[in-house]
């Protein structure tokens, strides 16, 4: 299960496939997603949006079953009280202001006007759009439209948030703010499923990731765990230290070390090894033996992009 370990799964897909005529959307996906932030990563056309649309009941599976919080997605009356979806579609009902847009669906859900207004304003404030909420959505920038969609998705205080490319159109400052909001929402014990094709964005906020390619789930789990499963692909470690060429030469003598690249400033190198544990033990020993001063040791490829590249290129094998 992805997400926080030990908790009951919130989103469960069991053998789910979806075809559009002869075209494959996703194929035989079995997945359990728990509380916390789960990143859904893959290139365009990999099936991320199809998976999200299936989870939210906007489309139905050709095969298999989906349950969210124990409910089937085709029961909006029960499920949508507890689920919010910020879809990728950049379209809005015509003529509405920002607050009118958010309120519209709270009113349709049966809330009174003043309660709907309070909730809408609270959600709009959380996404940092309070000052512009009286303006028409048609005049919003792409980033503002993205924020107001996010406000609409969180306005009814859902337990589960499905966010399809929520950072699209946001400038770097806004991205940082919204990522902070995601962390806050997750800290409130919600389940967030966030898709992105910009991998490092998801990497830095996700507790777990689901990697997709060509309609298949390529890998799932915590980023670190996933990296450790890639036993056949060398782990890369960045070392900054004194006497870097000397240390690099000693490491090259190890059986599992396949490559060492010295940095041009000769104050560090990247070492690639098939055995992470052996590498770290050897590093410790050589540092003590040779009196090398270590400035930093960092995993150089534990980010999702690296893992994703290994997996989709077929050069790695998940354990």
């Amino acid at each position: 299960m992805t997400g926080s370990s030990g908790a009951r799964p919130v989103i469960v897909l069991d053998g789910v496939s979806r075809f559009y005529g002869d075209v494959l959307g996703i194929s035989d996906v079995t997945l359990e997603i728990g509380p916390g932030i789960t990143g859904l990563v893959g290139p365009n056309g990999s099936g991320k949006t199809t998976l999200m649309n299936l989870v939210t009941g906007l489309i139905r599976p050709s095969d298999g079953s989906v349950r969210v919080l124990g409910h089937p997605p085709d029961d909006p009356e029960l499920l949508m009280r507890r689920l919010g979806y910020c879809a990728q579609v950049d379209a809005f009902p015509p003529g509405l202001t920002g607050i009118g847009f958010v309120m519209r669906y709270l009113l349709a859900a049966g809330l009174g006007r003043s309660r709907a207004r309070d909730l809408a304003l609270r959600a709009i404030s959380r996404v940092g759009l309070a000052e512009a909420c009286g303006r028409r959505v048609a005049g919003y920038s792409k980033g503002m439209r993205q924020r107001i969609k996010l406000a609409q998705a969180i306005a009814h205080d859902p337990d589960v948030l499905i966010l399809d490319e929520p950072l699209n159109g946001l400038d770097p400052l806004a991205r940082a703010e919204i990522l902070g909001l995601f962390r806050d929402l997750a800290a409130e014990n919600r389940t967030l499923l966030i898709s992105s094709h910009i991998l490092h964005e998801v990497d830095i906020v996700s507790d777990a990731v689901v990697l997709m390619n060509d309609g298949f789930v390529v890998a799932e789990g915590a980023v670190r765990d996933m990296r450790e499963e890639l036993t056949t692909h060398p782990l890369q470690v960045l070392v900054r230290c004194s006497r870097a060429p000397r240390l690099a030469a000693r490491l090259l003598e190890l059986e599992d070390v396949v490559e060492v690249r010295i940095h041009p400033d000769r104050a560090g190198f990247v070492v690639a090894s098939r055995d992470a544990d052996a590498l770290h033990l050897a590093l410790e020993r050589i540092v003590v033996d040779d009196g090398v001063e270590i400035e930093t040791i960092l995993p150089a490829d534990e980010d999702i992009q690296a893992i994703y590249n290994y997996l989709v290129s077929g050069s790695g094998e998940a354990g």
């Binding site: 949508m80 579609v89 009902p93």
Partner: peptide, 24 residues
């Protein structure tokens, strides 16, 4: 018209039965 405007999904993501939305 809502399908063409690509806004119907907002209604379908609201906690209201689809047929009740249509009734309204």
């Amino acid at each position: 018209r809502e399908l063409e405007q690509r806004t119907l999904h907002y209604a379908f993501l609201t906690p209201i039965r689809r047929e009740l939305y249509m009734a309204g």
